[in-house]
Structures are given as structure tokens and as C-alpha cells.
Design a protein around this nucleic acid. Structure first.
Lengths: 341, 341
DNA sequence: AATGTGTTCTGAACCGTTACGGTCACTTCA
DNA sequence: TGAAGTGACCGTAACGGTTCAGAACACATT
């Protein structure tokens, strides 16, 4: 039976014909993929875990880029890509347990995510993306911290000393508002933690007291969130000369808010992002371009070539600082800095 | 064993503890999802078939919107979403056979696609999207033909009579160039066929000989393709006053080409699209907005509520004509029309 | 003590496939 | 003619769960 479908060379054409003929007559729909998977111990698919509403992945251009790269790698290997429905609100890990896959890619989830723990318990290879190094697990990512430090130094060189920060969700709980120093350091999202640390380092080195820098967090990663967060920063300290956002999406919101307030960018206020999505570069934002597609592809390859080399392996991709329409701080602000307020 | 994990009420806490304890000691990784699927006859996932390179789905905003909606529906139902790697070049149907899913959504593939045939042979519910009605299969889509007719009438009202068309791939073979009348009618992609038919009807009714209207096809669905196709149309007949594209992506390319040629839009040339993607509406394109997200969600719901109602069912969603920066034909062209060239 | 009732636990059948080894017929060559 | 070799075909045992019938046991009732 099996041979008739999958191994035509193992039997005579005559028999094969006969088998297929009766199969059709009996209404046999062809070998069952699940049973086959059980027997061969291969699901023919890769699982993707992202702790966001699944649909979010399609709204964030950076995530879409990552998906595209990952899909590319899967396609090359003839593997399916299973999007695992992991709702961040509910702690329902069942979906992870039920996923019939040969391996997992985990994309930017908090360190303490129960879904992540569930994935690691499964006896299949796993690749972590945008996560800290974990024992015995493959990893792919960028040097968020160094990239952000570079961006910060660029601003510092231009003369910016009074800055504000808008960042994404730092942990699983919703905390829309100011971020304490403590919360910054104990942030559960590796990416956000690293980026903030990079900023803190650069500005501290430049003699700025990081404690005084307002950092505002938003749970939802949308342009609207970016705008409202920017507003909150500007209300706390209207005299900041640069608004650093930890993602382009947030930065686009900040741009909108600046516009609403009649602030010219970059003359009155410099805004920066992170990721290098198309919309951001089009709008002239200063940002860090990271190879999201390449990241996805690398994650897929790492997973699918699991045999290769000694594991765990770690891939760090290069980033590039995009100098958009940044400007020196406005005169008044610069003067203030030199002569006091 | 099974009970210890899934049915805690069926056994004493003491035994459950003991079972789990020894399981852990033996390094048992928890129930195997594939074996469970085999027994329960549920894969817990929905398959998505699109005959494009998988990664393409993430590059086309309309497709991304569809995916988002579908993902939304799957998430609600706690189902995974499996992207089936179906390469349009190779006729490798194996991936369809190997997909462990409880049902399929098929998104805009040609009528004669072998992958589609393979899906229909599988004994699982299926929902077709942007496909013609098929016996015994659920369907969701829009009225492409009527929508395009409406758009055409709008142009006709403005006075456009000399138009050109840029369309997407009409069949599985690559045919970058002019499209014969015959090829138009026998197009294998339902969506493209319907849109062309809608145009033909409206313009014929307005007294335009459809045979004279240049229609140029492009295999790849990219902005660059749109631009080159627009160039081809304009070379064939530089005096056209409106360029109708069957997708926004192509239309964006046409806009770029118009710009390159120094043609002002819409004063010198009117350009229209189809889909209503964000970039298109931002650039003021006249287009038909279709609810892509809703389409994906509807497809998912239809599939997941398979029990409900009598099948097959058919859902047709509403579209909306977006009147962008269309203009009447330039004077010269209008004059020509009245007084001859 | 025998019977009934309810609970906890055990064992076996089944899901549909593939891998493997064995049977059998038939060819080849000494 | 018989032994060895070849290839086609077939039967069976897993794969790892879930489910369900019924065994075993505890306890209450007559």
C-alpha cells in the first residue's frame, strides 16, 4: 500500500496500478500525513512561537520581514511553517504541546515566558531569536546594546545631552508610563533591556546622569502608542532636544506627535528609531537598520541544518546606523546647556 | 499515563503525583503531539495554501492583511496556522500530502493548479478564497467583476475613453507582455479574469472597442513590474489618458513610471489600482478598497465552524470605490476624441 | 455474609503508516 | 537437474497516544 504511493520502484507497475485502482474504488484518500509523521518521526514543519497576538506579527513590518526570511528558509527545505497560537494574556501552554513540529523558532519573547519554557521542555531542536544566550540552545540576533550605543554617541556628538526615551513593553505586565531605573535593569525582554543599557552606557560616559532621563514605556507596539508616549515624555520635560525610541514604529508615532505640537523635526526636536523599516527610512528617521529578513532566514537555516557543527551555535548579525535627518540641538537648548537655564 | 496529564480528575492526586514523578525521572518529555493527533483525529492546525513563493505572501500588503485576518480567526479558535510550502515552479504536491491539518484555506491560486487539486482530494474541509465557485466547497471572496465595472464607469464618466491596462499573472506560464483577447478570457486566475471582464464590459457599453485596449501582463507582482508594464503600455499608445492596474502594487509602479516620464498624475495621466492597501491610499490612488483582513477572518471562521449550516457556503464581501486623485482626460486628448486626431 | 454501589486503576484495542524480514516464484549458471 | 541468486510481494511489528471496558477494591446497605 505504502509502497504503491511512495516507492513505485519496489513493485511492478501492474500491481501498483491494481492497488491504486482498488484504493480509488474504496475511496481511500491517500496516506494519512499524521500517521506517517508518527511512524517516520518527522512532522515536516517548523513551529514559530511569538508571544503576541498571532495577528500582531503581520502588523509590525519588522516582524513581517523576519517571517519572510524564515518562510524563505523553510521553503528551501520543503518544510511547512506552523504559527503557534500563543496568547500572551492567557498562560495557555497547550498550543505548544499540541504543535506537531520538528523544531521551534522562538521570536522575541520575554525571558520568563511560560510558552518559552514549554518549548524548551520539548525534545526538539530550538532556535532563539532576539533572546539572551541560553545554555545548549542555538541563538540568532544582533548586538542591540552596541548598536544603540553607537546611535547614542551620534546624538552626543551632535550635542544632545537632554534626551527622552520611548520604549516597548519591558515585561509581561502592562505598565504604560514612566520606567524606574530598577524596572529598566530587570526588563524581561532582552532586546529592550539591551537597548536601554546601551543608551545608559553612552550617556553616562558623556556625563549625563541617566537617572534624570525620562523613559516611558508602552505595552502596545503601535504608532498611536508611540505618539502618546512621546507626549508623555515631552510633558515631563519640554526642553529635551532628542527623543530616542527603541523601535521605528514608536518613532513614527513620536514624529506624528511632534508634528501635532508644531515642533519641527529635526530643527526643534530630533527623533530616532530602531529597526530600519521602510516607512522609517522613507520619513528620514535616524535609525539602526537591522537585517530582519536575514535574521529570519538565519534562524530557519540554523534549525534545519541541526545536524551541522557542534551545538549550540550563536549567530550575531551586523547592524548599520542610518543617519537620517538628525540635527544639532536648537540654539536655545544648547545655550541653556552652556549658560544654565 | 494519558490521564495523569490530561484528566486529573480521573485519578487520585496521589497516583497522579507518583506517575508524574516517575515520568520525570525517566525523562519522559510529555505526550507526543503527533501520536495524539493520530488517535484523536485532530491536528489542531489549519493549512494555508498559496501558490507563490511562501515568502511572497509577506511582501504583498494585501496578502499580509489576509494572513492577519486568518491568523486572527485561528487564534480565536486556538488553532495553529500552517503555511504549506507550495512552489509554483515545481509541481511538487507532496507538501500538500504531508501537511497535518484539519482543513485548508486556499488563497488565490489558478484554477488548474495541481496543489489545489491535491487539496481537494484530501478528506478535510476546505475554503477557497478568491476562486470561482466550486461544487461542494466553501468560498469567500468579493465581486471583482462588479467592483472593476464600477471603477471603469467612474473613469468613463470623467471622460476617459482611451485607456490601457496593466494586470497580474493570468496563468501559470510566464507571459510578460501584451495579452490577447483569448488569453484574457481563458485566464486561469479567477480574480484577474473577473477584473478584466468587468473592465471589458463597462468600456464596451461605453462604446469603446475592447479589442483596441492594450492589456499588458506581468508575471511578478512587484512595483518594478508595474513600472515596466506601464512603460510598455505607454509605448504602445502614448495617447492613453488613463492607466488601469489590476492591483495597487502594480499601480504604484505605474505612478513611478509616470513620474519618470514627467507625466503629471492625474492631470496628464490618471492611474488606478485595486485592493486599497495603505500605501496606495496614501499616494492618492483611485482604487477599490477590499476588506482583506475581513476576508482572511471570514475564511478562517468558515473553516473552523465547519459544522454549522448546510455546506457549501459562499461569502461575498463588500468593496468600496475610493475616488483618489482622478481627473478628467487632458484637454488635448478630449479634443482629439471629439474632433479626431 | 451477600449484594449493591461507586471509585480507582489496569490492560488491551485501535488510530494509519512505514520498516523490516521472510516467502515464494523465477532466472541463471554450473 | 539442482543450487544459488534475484526480485516481487506480503505480513507483521512498532510508532505513542487515547479510550473504554472491566477488574479490583472500598464501603454502605439489606
Amino acid at each position: 500500500m505504502s509502497n504503491a504511493y511512495n516507492r513505485p520502484d519496489q513493485l511492478s507497475p501492474e500491481l501498483r496500478r491494481r492497488v491504486l485502482e482498488t484504493a480509488r474504488r474504496l475511496g481511500y484518500p491517500g496516506p494519512d500525513p499524521v500517521a506517517r509523521s508518527l511512524r517516520t518521526r518527522k512532522a515536516g514543519a517548523v513551529g514559530l512561537l511569538l508571544t503576541e497576538n498571532l495577528s500582531y506579527a503581520f502588523r509590525d513590518p519588522a516582524a513581517v520581514g523576519f517571517l519572510e526570511g524564515l518562510a524563505l528558509a523553510c521553503e528551501d527545505a520543503g518544510q511547512g511553517l506552523l504559527l503557534v497560537p500563543a496568547n500572551p494574556e492567557r498562560e495557555d501552554v497547550a498550543a505548544v504541546h499540541r504543535a506537531g513540529v520538528d523544531g521551534f523558532v522562538v521570536y522575541s519573547v520575554p525571558d520568563d515566558d511560560p510558552h518559552l519554557a514549554a518549548v524548551l521542555e520539548r525534545p526538539v531542536p530550538t532556535v532563539l531569536c532576539d533572546q539572551p544566550d541560553l545554555e545548549d540552545v542555538d541563538r540568532v540576533g544582533i548586538d542591540d546594546r552596541a548598536a544603540m550605543t553607537e546611535l547614542a554617541r551620534h546624538l552626543i556628538e551632535l550635542g544632545h545631552r537632554r534626551v527622552g526615551v520611548v520604549c516597548m513593553r519591558l515585561a509581561r505586565d502592562r505598565n504604560d508610563g514612566y520606567v524606574s531605573h530598577e524596572r529598566q535593569q530587570s526588563a524581561r525582554f532582552h532586546v529592550q533591556r539591551s537597548r536601554l543599557a546601551g543608551l545608559a552606557q553612552a550617556f553616562t560616559e558623556a556625563g549625563v546622569d541617566w537617572q534624570d532621563v525620562p523613559v516611558v514605556e508602552r505595552f502596545d507596539h503601535t504608532i498611536a502608542s508611540g505618539a502618546s508616549a512621546a507626549a508623555q515624555v515631552l510633558e515631563r520635560d519640554p526642553r529635551i532636544t532628542a527623543l530616542i525610541c527603541t523601535s521605528d514604529i514608536l518613532a513614527l508615532g513620536a514624529l506624528a506627535e511632534a508634528d501635532r505640537r508644531g515642533l519641527r523635526v529635526p530643527q526643534d526636536l530630533t527623533v530616532t528609531g530602531f529597526d530600519g523599516i521602510r516607512e522609517a527610512e522613507q520619513s528620514g528617521l535616524t535609525t539602526v537598520r537591522q537585517p530582519v529578513l536575514e535574521k529570519g532566514r538565519a534562524a530557519g537555516k540554523l534549525l534545519l541544518d541541526s545536524a551541522e557543527r557542534t551545538r549550540p551555535r550563536s549567530v550575531t548579525l551586523a547592524t548599520e546606523l542610518i543617519r537620517g535627518t538628525t540635527a544639532a540641538p536648537p540654539r536655545s537648548a544648547a545655550d541653556e546647556r552652556w549658560f544654565g537655564p
